[in-house]
C-alpha cells in the first residue's frame, strides 16, 4: 500500500520536474509553427499605432511588426496585434503573451538591465515636450511654476517631468492617468494646464482635440527619448532577427532600394544591394531566415524613409520633419551597421 503511494508520487514529481526544465525559449520556431507574429502595440496613438474604421492598423510602430513578420514568415500581414497600455506592456512581453513589443517605448538603462528585456534598435528618436492652452499666454516651459500637469502614468515622461521641475526649482501638481484618452479628456476639461509627453505624441494628441488650434506646443525639449522595438532577454537568435529586420529597412534607404524599385534592384550590380536582397551571400541563413528576408520586408513594408513618410512624416496628418530621424548621411541619427 505505502509503496504504491510512494511510487505514484515519485513518478508525478519526476514528470513535473522534467517538464519544468524543458522550458527553453525558441521564439523563431514557435512563431513559424503558429504561423503569425504576436506583436504588442499602443492602443491608439496616431502616427505610431491607430486603427481605421475597418480595423486596419497603421503607424510607424505597426510597420516594425509587419517587417518582422515579412522577414520571418514571408508575409507582412501575418501579425496578431495586442494593444497594451503603458503599464501592461513589459509584463505582457515578459510573460510571453507577445513576442515583440513595438509600442513607442523609451530605451533606458533600467529597462534594458533589470526587466529582462533587450532593445533591438531605435525606430524613432524623440524628446519630451509640453503642450498648453494658448489662452494661458505661456511661451516657455520655464513659466510653468505651479501648473497642474497631465501625464500618462508609468512612463519615463513622469520621471523626466519630476526631474525637470526639480532642476529648475519649480513646483507642479501631477495629474496622472492610465490611458492616453483620459489624459486628453483631463486636459480638455481643464483639470490641468499642461500636457506633457514625447513631442511626437503631442502632435498626434493635438489632432485628437476638439479645437487643435487652441493649444500650442512649447519650444523646450527636456529629454532624450529613443523609442524602439523590444524583445525578451535570453533568446539571442530572436533578438538578432528583430535587430536586422529593422536594420534592413534603414540599409535599404541608404542603398536607395524602395518598395517600388526593389524588383529591378534584384538585377543591380552594386554588391551592397546584392547582399541586402540576398542575391549574393547567405546573410539571411545566418539569422535562421530565408536569404530573401530583406527583399520581403522592402517589397511588402518599404524602406525606413517610405515608412516614416507615410506614417508620421510629410505624407501624414502629423507632418513631423525627419530631424534626428534622417539618415546619418543627411545629418540625422538613423544608421544601419553594414550588411556584410
Amino acid at each position: 500500500m505505502k509503496s504504491k503511494i510512494a511510487k505514484i508520487s515519485m513518478a508525478a514529481i519526476a514528470v513535473i520536474g522534467l517538464s519544468a526544465s524543458v522550458a527553453n525559449a525558441d521564439t523563431l520556431s514557435d512563431t513559424k509553427a503558429q504561423g503569425y507574429l504576436k506583436c504588442g502595440i499602443n492602443s491608439g496613438l496616431p502616427g505610431f499605432a491607430s486603427a481605421d474604421s475597418k480595423g486596419h492598423w497603421t503607424g510607424i510602430d505597426i510597420e516594425v511588426c509587419r517587417a518582422v513578420a515579412a522577414a520571418v514568415l514571408g508575409d507582412s500581414t501575418k501579425v496578431k496585434f495586442t494593444s497594451l497600455n503603458a503599464k501592461e506592456r513589459f509584463t505582457a512581453l515578459q510573460s510571453g503573451e507577445i513576442d515583440l513589443l513595438s509600442r513607442n517605448t523609451t530605451w533606458t538603462e533600467t529597462r534594458d538591465a533589470s526587466l529582462g528585456l533587450n532593445f533591438a534598435g531605435v525606430n524613432f528618436y524623440d524628446g519630451q515636450g509640453f503642450m498648453v492652452h494658448k489662452s494661458l499666454g505661456v511661451k516657455s516651459a520655464k513659466e510653468l511654476d505651479g501648473a497642474a500637469v497631465c501625464v500618462q502614468s508609468g512612463t519615463t515622461t513622469e520621471l523626466n517631468l519630476a526631474d525637470y521641475f526639480r532642476k529648475n526649482g519649480m513646483k507642479y501638481k501631477l495629474v496622472a492617468y492610465d490611458a492616453n484618452d483620459q489624459v486628453v479628456k483631463g486636459y480638455e476639461s481643464g483639470r490641468c494646464d499642461v500636457i506633457t509627453s514625447d513631442s511626437s505624441q503631442l502632435y498626434s494628441l493635438r489632432i485628437k482635440l476638439k479645437n487643435p488650434s487652441g493649444s500650442a506646443v512649447l519650444p523646450e525639449i527636456i529629454s532624450k527619448e529613443p523609442l524602439g522595438p523590444v524583445v525578451r532577454q535570453g533568446d539571442d537568435k530572436w533578438f538578432n532577427i528583430v535587430k536586422w529586420s529593422y536594420n534592413a529597412m534603414v540599409a535599404a534607404e541608404e542603398a536607395g532600394i524602395t518598395s517600388k524599385n526593389v524588383d529591378s534592384m534584384l538585377k543591380s550590380n552594386n554588391p551592397t544591394v546584392k547582399r541586402i536582397l540576398g542575391v549574393e551571400g547567405k546573410l539571411g541563413a545566418n539569422l535562421g531566415l530565408s536569404k530573401d528576408f530583406a527583399y520581403n520586408i522592402i517589397k511588402q513594408v518599404g524602406n525606413y524613409g517610405e515608412v516614416f513618410d507615410k506614417t508620421v512624416g510629410m505624407n501624414s496628418p502629423l507632418k513631423i520633419k525627419r530631424g534626428l530621424n534622417a539618415l546619418w548621411t543627411k545629418g540625422g541619427l538613423q544608421y544601419s551597421p553594414p550588411f556584410r
Binding site: 503599464k87 513589459f90 515578459q94 533600467t110 533589470s114 502614468s153 508609468g154 512612463t155 520621471l159 496622472a176
Partner: peptide, 14 residues
C-alpha cells in the same frame, strides 16, 4: 494606482 501601477512599471517586478 501608484504602487501596483506606476512603481510596478518603473521597476518591473510584477
Amino acid at each position: 494606482t501608484v504602487f501596483a501601477g506606476t512603481s510596478l512599471n518603473q521597476v518591473g517586478q510584477a
